[in-house]
Structure formats: C-alpha cells, structure tokens
C-alpha cells in the first residue's frame, strides 16, 4: 500500500512540474498556425482563418472595395457569431494583378476585440497602386501565460 502511495506521489509531483514548464510560453505572438481554413460563402476568398474553430465564431458580413486616389481601399465587416468576447489579431495581405504578394511581411498585425455577437469594420489601404486583390488573415490572441 505504502509503495503505491509513493509511486502515486512521484507521478503526481513530476506531472505537476511538467505542466508548469509547458505553460510558460509568452502571450505575445501566439496563434501562428499553418492550417488555414476558409468559410464556404462568397466572401471566403477574402478571409483566412488561423484555426478551424474560429470559422464557427466568425463571419464576414460584407466586403466593399474601391479605388481612392488610385489605391485599393477595403472595408471588411467582420461579425462575431460567438456569445463571448473574442480577442483577435488581423492583417491584410495584398496581391497584384498576377497574384503576387505586394510588400510581403510589412503589414503589421493589428489587435481587435469583438464582444459577443458584435461586428466591426476592418479597414485596409493598399500600399501602392499595383495592388489588385487582397485577403485578411485573422487569428486568436492567446489570453494568458501561466507561470509558477
């Protein structure tokens, strides 16, 4: 009996420490994933989501674009279909006529918070006149870091 208790103690203690170590990730840049998932509606080509779960919580209500001063200006209305708050980050990707990326990796991630069922308009302006199309990449922000 004592032996069993001893083994259990060892197992419990070590598992506790393992979890403690695993959760010390910084909260800043989480959510960089490779499995993109798009929704099945007409606007889907404009929205890239980080995780499949996000597709159940987000929806594009409207996409508008126009040329202002020969630059592509985009308004994209993002609506939450989730009852709780969503802390998100997004950035625009810009493509030229041939579908090549314009000003790659220069558009910063922007934080946006959506309360339950709230919708908001994301606004983007093309960096130059060559831009012909775009998409928006949305990811969820990790909330906290747990530390010992």
């Amino acid at each position: 009996m004592k032996e069993i208790i001893g083994i259990a103690t060892v197992a419990l203690l070590s598992s506790l420490f393992v979890t403690g170590c695993a959760n010390t990730q910084p909260p800043t840049t989480s959510g960089i994933g490779t499995n993109e998932m798009t929704q099945g509606d007409e606007f889907s080509k404009h929205l890239k989501l980080d995780k499949p779960e996000l597709a159940l919580k987000l929806n594009i209500a409207e996409v508008k674009s126009r040329k202002t001063n020969r630059l592509l200006e985009v308004n994209l209305q993002l609506a939450s279909t989730f009852k709780k708050s969503l802390k998100l980050q997004y950035h625009f990707n810009w493509f030229d006529e041939q579908g090549f990326v314009v000003e790659a990796r220069k558009t910063p991630w922007k934080p946006v918070e959506l309360h339950g069922f709230q919708s908001t308009t994301l606004r983007g302006v093309a960096p130059n006149e060559q831009v012909a199309s775009f998409n928006v990449y949305v990811r969820e922000t990790a909330e906290k870091s747990y530390k010992y």
Binding site: I5, T9, K106
Partner: peptide
C-alpha cells in the same frame, strides 16, 4: 520513495528555472 520524489521535483524545478531560449520572432507581431 520519498527521496526519489524529492529528487525528481528538485530536478524539474531546476530545469524550469534555468531555461533560456533564443528564437526568432515575427517583427510585425503584436
């Protein structure tokens, strides 16, 4: 058993405390 448990715990704790990792990050991240 107790000694083993203590030893394991101490090793884990030491492992946690001295962790130092260098990695590249995203310059455009929040």
């Amino acid at each position: 058993m107790l000694a083993t448990a203590l030893g394991l715990a101490l090793t884990m704790a030491a492992g946690c405390a001295q962790k130092s990792v260098v990695r590249y990050g995203d310059a455009t991240a929040v």
